[in-house]
Design a binder for these strands. Structure first.
Lengths: 345, 345
DNA sequence: GTGAAAGCGCTAACAC
DNA sequence: GTGTTAGCGCTTTCAC
């Protein structure tokens, strides 16, 4: 780098600096077409010397191709979506594609805005959480003319591609597992989020699963805001004071479940003998608690990977025509230490 | 929306649809200049009817202005950076600016790559974690011709603007607080990350702080990978078996600190009487533990906000010339329940 | 293997 | 208030 330029450098500057046409410089920088080794080296040297950074805005406009993948998720702080992003990143790592993340805070209007802004960059594909969207959002997605992968959930009809698990099914499975261990008096705690459709579906599946055995949830509570761990603690205390007959607590996520677990340990309550517990998500972060909370993983990493693969495939010169675009993954139940009343050891 | 178009719509399509020049359509869509209310409505109606989404690629190229802010951070899973992003988002929320996040995984070469890719989109500014960068990275940052805010840390010389705390100072303060409570046999646990400069500086500050009182760390351990909570648990057990004389454990982050805390509670050890504990970061997530871990907050939200404000100011028609661009924030120490041996209640 | 011309979809600047 | 012209910095296409 000779001198800090005030105006961003252009291809032209590199061209001038090494006496080669802009076109050839462009070819070298994009590693396309045949360029003699000699000129290639000269160009590269000049570009480096000047500190040239290509202008993708101009490049994308000219080539009509943008190597961006829009990833639209409800939240970052949640522990679940960063893991999905990791999956996406892993797959796109050594490709020209780059993920760009937008966050909706579980708000449909914000989802609409964020999508609109992302589409205005003409990305190569969209990965978006959930199957429930506003009409406007669905319309944009349909008309964008690019691959759209709806992720996390498969209980519904996708616009295009879909990768996820059945949360309804997950709730049912958990109900079955709990009943199998002989628990009968069941309480539920979750987020007060009418817009978290996946949590809702899990809850519905759960009650359905119980209903098959003629059992109903005996108490329930919902929270919003605050530290999930603290909320789990408080809510558990409240619920047990209110409904001391309960012998199982199902939490809509691992964090509040962990709060409950810590509270019960504090109280010296026998887990899972007197009371059993389960959460959802298999949050790695929680390994290291005094007991392992029973949970179900949501296949977050795999979902991110599969979604990215679908988008990627579509940008390939020869896309794999057999690549599945509607993928249902199966969550694994971990009994941990809090859901095995009938220990047979 | 009448029909799903195969080719993305252009201004021209809207122009045709409502019998108004492209230029006027453009003005309406960008809410610029004077347009009669009547035509304004016609244009808006047509655009909505067609489902037109503007092409920012073309727009940015023409206007030579890109409303993107590059935010480059080491990690997403860390709990600390999502909070910084929240701060950035809050400030940019109702502005034309949009953050775009890149993750480096604490790797200088990746930082270089990510920055290069982001700069190729010609963003309006860069927010980047840390003051330590490769020569190439520094050169790119210097020559980019846009505002650069280095965040998190102030122990060093910034390229341009800087917002953060002194981690060295934070370590010293913690040492002082610990000594003041009468602890004398101190162990340290942290990540094995030669590239986490802020953790390193905290550690250095900490040992300096102890040294002033003629005290040295008596044991130390470093980990990498895995669940921090579990690691904290294991490492604490190991360290106390190895060095049973220790009466204080300082952890480089709250998560391993929490693991240690849970382990010690398990063991029925008197906290903070027999052993005191402290972490770093003031992670909200941990509220709800049986005891509150002593910690120091890193002003993550404020850092994100201040950094965003600096970039934003620069894009304004009339920037505030007095806006501070080198900001040192002061972390707050929370004693919690694990650092008050000399209780005076 | 290299270069020249055209144009991607929009906006700045100016004319009316 | 509205339209016209030129051109942003690249890549596509085609000529040599």
């Amino acid at each position: 780098m000779t001198q800090p330029p005030k105006r961003p450098l252009t291809l032209r500057d590199v061209s001038d600096a090494c006496g080669v046409s802009e076109m050839t410089v462009s070819r070298v920088l994009r590693k396309r077409g045949d360029v003699s080794e000699a000129t290639r080296r000269r160009v590269l040297a000049a570009a480096k010397e000047l500190g040239y950074v290509p202008n993708q805005i101009a490049g994308s406009l000219a080539s009509q191709r943008v190597n961006l993948v829009a990833v639209i998720i409800p939240s970052l702080s949640n522990m679940v979506f960063p893991e999905v992003l990791n999956g996406v990143n892993q797959v796109l790592e050594d490709t020209p594609l780059q993920p760009v993340v937008g966050v909706t805070d579980y708000m449909p209007e914000k989802e609409e805005r964020v999508l609109y802004e992302m589409l205005s960059w003409r990305p190569s594909g969209v990965i978006i959480a959930g199957l429930e969207h506003s009409d406007a959002t669905r319309a944009m997605l349909k008309n964008a003319g690019i691959p759209v992968v709806e992720i996390m959930d498969v209980d519904g009809r996708p616009i295009d591609a879909m990768v996820g698990i059945s949360h309804r099914r997950a709730g049912q499975e958990m109900a079955k597992a709990i009943l199998k261990e002989g628990y009968e008096h069941i309480g539920f705690m979750g987020t007060k989020m009418p817009l978290d459709h996946r949590a809702r579906k899990r809850f519905e599946g759960f009650t359905e699963g119980l209903a098959k055995a003629g059992i109903e949830i005996e108490d329930r509570a919902f929270y919003s805001g605050g530290s999930a761990l603290a909320k789990g603690r408080e809510m558990t205390q409240d619920m047990l004071e209110r409904s001391p007959e309960l012998d199982f607590l199902y939490y809509s996520n691992d964090m509040i479940g962990a709060g409950g677990l810590l509270y019960l340990i504090d109280q010296g309550i026998d887990i899972p003998g007197q009371i059993g517990l389960a959460g959802f998500n298999n949050v790695e972060l929680l390994q290291g608690l005094p007991r392992q909370l029973a949970t179900m993983d949501a296949c977050r990493l795999e979902i991110g990977q599969a979604a990215a693969r679908i988008i990627l495939n579509d940008t390939l010169d020869e896309p794999d025509p057999d690549l599945q675009t509607q993928i249902t993954l199966t969550p694994t139940l971990s009994l941990g230490d809090t859901l095995r009343r009938n220990r047979k050891v």
